[in-house]
Every structure is written in C-alpha cells, then in structure tokens.
Design a protein around this nucleic acid. Structure first.
Lengths: 153, 153
DNA sequence: TGAATAATGTTATAGTATAACATAATAATT
DNA sequence: AATTATTATGTTATACTATAACATTATTCA
C-alpha cells in the first residue's frame, strides 16, 4: 500500500534530502549514488542488488562491486536500509533520525513500510540490558500482510 | 557466554527433546537430522550451512541440498532458527514454545542467546496492528556485545 | 509383496557478496 | 596551473549462500 498519490514526488523528496545530507556531511553524492538511490526509491517494494545492477545498464559500468559499494555508502549514511530477511534494500524514509526503526513487509504486494517507535526501541534495549547484553544494532523485520492485501483476498 | 558447565549435556538435552517432539508429531528424526542438529548444538555460536556440510564429512553424502533440506526440516519443526543477519543457524533452546523469541548476538565471541518475552511480542503486534498490518512472522536480531566480552575489553 | 510416500543422493546452476588490483575523478597543496 | 593525495569507480576473479530438477534408497501401509 503506498500512500503517495504520485510516487515521483517521493523519489524527488528523497533525492533532495539525500543531497542536503551529503552536503552537510561533506560527502559526495555522485551520479552513481544518486542513480542507485533513485532506482531504489522508484521501486515501491525492496530492491535486490542484482536488479539494481541490471537497471543501471549501460550508463554505468554495472558490476557487482560497483553496486554493493554504492549500497554500502547509502547504508552507512542512513539513506537506505538492508532487509536481511529478503537480501534486499529499501530507501530510508527519514534519513536524519533513522535509528530504532523496523519494517513491515507485506509478502503479498511486497511493499515495505518503515516504522519508527522509540518506545519499542526502549523496550528492546531494556530487555537486552536485563540479559546483560549491550546492544549496538537491531534488526526488526515483521513479515505479514498489509491491509490492502487483506481486503483484496 | 555459555551458562552450561558441561555443554555435552545441553546437546544431549536438545537431542532428547527433539526425539520426543518428532515422536509426538510422527516425524522421522533420522540419523542425518539428528547429526545436523547435534552439530549445530555442539557449536556455542551459530552455524553456517557450509560448515555443517564439511563437518558431516564422509558419513553422509554432504552436499548443499542435503544440508539445506535438513535445516528446513529442523526449522519447520521449531528445532532450529535461522539468523538472517548472519546467514547462520542456531539450535532452539525451547522448541515447544518457540514463538516470539529474539536473539542477542555477540559480535565479539559470536555467541547467540535466544530470548523469549511475550510482552515484547505483544508490543510489536500492537504496533503492527496500529499500522494496519497483520503480522505473521517476526525477525528480531540484536547485535552487540555480551557482558563477558565487555568485561574482557 | 507391492504400491505409495518420504527421505536422501546427485548434478547442475542460480543468487548474493567480496577481495584485490587498475584506472579515473576530485580535492588539497605547492 | 601542476603535483600530490585522496576518494570513487572500473575490472577480473572468486567466494559464499541457496535451490531446481531428477535419480535412488528407505520406510510405511495396504
């Protein structure tokens, strides 16, 4: 389910935000990086590295290392997330405060919704601490069905 | 950090539990399945499919499909879990009520602690529902450092 | 015993990711 | 502006993870 009426705007916004972030951090938002981020955003669901590679086509020398390096850059700077349970990547919908988020993955329409809820992150941190564990990074991915798909079926 | 003083006992217990579960469900706990589960349990951390394959060695015709099919069987019956962020497998420490669990993964000693906390699962379900999402399966993996490793460093 | 089912063996290949080194582009220094 | 240093990208090769498709063996059940 995508709430946006015209997805091109989402893509534009994401690219603009990325521009600004890279500018602030003195990072180079190169053509390749912009293109990959754009491709990821154009997709309502998650994107696989090798699919991105194909879409890059002739414009860039699109071989695995190129794609994975670019994905690493985008991940390191909070612009995309990797969905471990899918081996796929999604654009981050709020890259400036992208911690403690989790993902709702509809296995019917394949859309991925990113959610942030600090109280959940807090609960999880508490739990970890009770288990004498010092958490650094959380992977929280919930697979299921979105409302639209439930209605349809 | 492993709490068990003699890990062989853990392995034994796990195999006995698996025996019972398979018996109850009229599943065949074959030599291969038993051996793979044992190998996984013998490892304090998580086990990679190809490592398991090597350890199976000559006793079984150890090729990828054999291993992955066996892992599938064990997963389907709640005897092992896959850790998506590691592409690795751990034994389930309470296979009869193995839902709603999460994992604390120490990236220093590589041990994986399985935790169950129904209130966390409830919180997550609530959150999903508020987002109009019907959850089916959750992946919750927390990477960090366990107390022992923190002390050491 | 023989047919049906389930498990395992086997070959091949698909899919995901990184190492190592070469070249090109950009930034900093002179 | 030319030189050097740094960062980014290109290139080749290969490692790692997983499954498809079909053959054979073992077990169950009629």
């Amino acid at each position: 389910m995508h709430a946006c009426h015209e997805h091109a705007l989402c893509v534009e916004e994401a690219l603009t935000a990325a521009d600004r972030i890279c500018d602030e951090r003195e990072l180079r938002f190169t053509d390749l990086r912009r293109r990959v981020l754009s491709l990821i955003w154009e997709n309502h669901g998650s994107s696989k590295a090798y699919d991105i590679m194909e879409k890059l086509g002739d414009d860039f020398s699109a071989k695995p290392p190129t794609v994975y390096r670019t994905l690493d850059f985008l991940q390191d700077n909070g612009l995309v997330h990797k969905i471990n349970s899918l081996n796929a990547y999604v654009g981050c919908s709020h890259p400036l405060k992208h911690q403690d988020c989790f993902f709702l993955i509809c296995s019917c329409c394949n859309e991925v919704q990113e959610c942030c809820a600090s109280h959940i992150a807090d609960t999880l941190r508490d739990m970890a601490n009770k288990n004498k564990f010092s958490p650094r990074h959380m992977t929280l991915e919930i697979e299921g069905e979105c409302q639209d798909c439930l209605k349809k079926n």
